[in-house]
Design a protein around this nucleic acid. Structure first.
Lengths: 206, 206
DNA sequence: ATTATAGGCTAATTTGAATTAGCCGTCAAG
DNA sequence: CTTGACGGCTAATTCAAATTAGCCTATAAT
């Protein structure tokens, strides 16, 4: 099989669990099923493995962009759908976002790695911020903004409304990253949150 | 001066910036103004320095408990005050919490260190969760619960209301930890958040 | 005055993990 | 069939960083 790719995969797993500095190249090699020196046939050194992970991530982010939408529909094309979105669909929106972030294997490991390494390299902090704060706020803001324009949701500050929608999701995500056991509880909380959100922002009809 | 204490202080600063594994005992010593071997007159080894930091933190958490309240008043004694709290005081509550977490020197460095090291040792993740998720939710929940009982705020789910109050604060905190430049913007957002929170939960009179 | 202790230093020493050297088998291309 | 590149291995080697040895000074207590 593709050893070069497997190295990245196992390295990411280890980096996300222990952090770069606490992972030995020998650990990575062992998981791949080879000896440490053989790694160097594929990558110049340990840092190059890390760099390759970052690169692969950049590639994947483009693809990912499409994954944060309601059940496969495309927001850019089908903007109309958001004007008549139901409460259940709003819940779906939040749950999908949450579960995608939480369960997508690559995303999850990568986020954990970023969390550990973010203060080590400013660029990584930037990636984290973009991926888990600014982009979601911007994207969710667009959707909620559309709903607000049609009067489904009512606010004179879409930015804050979006914060109210997303911040709890974000917080629950950081909880589950640290304590996966709390996922079930988190999902319940998430649903209750969105129902309350929906109620608070004065939807006219359910 | 107290070298032993200064070692802890400088070590915490470095650990919070680079993570345990990326800090050399020589770095710590240099900041204290001594040579690496002299550190060993005070601590058995590098790990012992780390452990001492954790211990000191545990001590400080007790004292800290009192710092999260509205301008110095004591909630346990003066519960009455929360029944007539004004919007401005609610904003103060949030801002104080936020600014205390963000600016208290020890708290800030310690939180960053926990963020970096949390996946390395499960106990640290637990401390982080307690300190920045569960305890704030529980404490804020108590206050908001009191306000809800008197009808100042209206909800049938105090837990979710508390999440709505605190999650944005938490998220803004993680933003400012990573990008201190955004503090001013974050404070504005925070204030707007609380005003909207106050409006949404149907305060009867300003 | 003597001595013990605290706390600093320089100069080793140890350690452990990354990396390099150099060998070997396989297999596809010529 | 032979050659060369790919990818594996073991056995060094390197190197950085933690730690230890052993010495020195100041100071405080007997």
């Amino acid at each position: 099989m593709d050893t070069k790719q497997r190295i990245l995969d196992e390295a990411l797993t280890l980096f996300s669990e222990k952090g770069y500095a606490n992972v030995f190249v020998a650990d990575i090699a062992a998981r791949v099923g080879i000896k440490a020196p053989s790694l160097y046939k594929h990558y110049k050194n340990k840092q190059a493995i890390f760099d390759a992970i970052i690169e692969e991530m950049n590639r994947r982010f483009v693809e990912q962009a499409g994954a944060l939408q309601i059940s496969g529909t495309d927001a850019a094309v089908d903007a109309e759908i958001y004007k008549q979105i139901s409460e259940e669909q709003l819940i779906d929106l939040g749950k999908n976002l949450f579960l995608y972030f939480l369960h997508d294997d690559y995303t999850r490991r990568f986020r954990k790695m970023l969390t550990i390494e973010q203060f080590h390299d400013k660029k990584l902090a930037d990636v984290y911020m973009k991926q888990y704060v600014d982009d979601p706020l911007s994207y969710q803001g667009m959707l909620l903004g559309m709903m607000s324009q049609t009067g489904i949701l009512q606010t004179d500050n879409v930015e804050i409304m979006t914060l109210h929608f997303y911040a709890p999701i974000y917080m629950l995500l950081t909880v589950c990253d640290r304590e996966p056991k709390r996922e079930k509880e988190a999902l319940k909380t998430l649903e209750a949150h969105i129902r309350e959100f929906n109620r608070l922002y004065g939807r006219k009809s359910g």
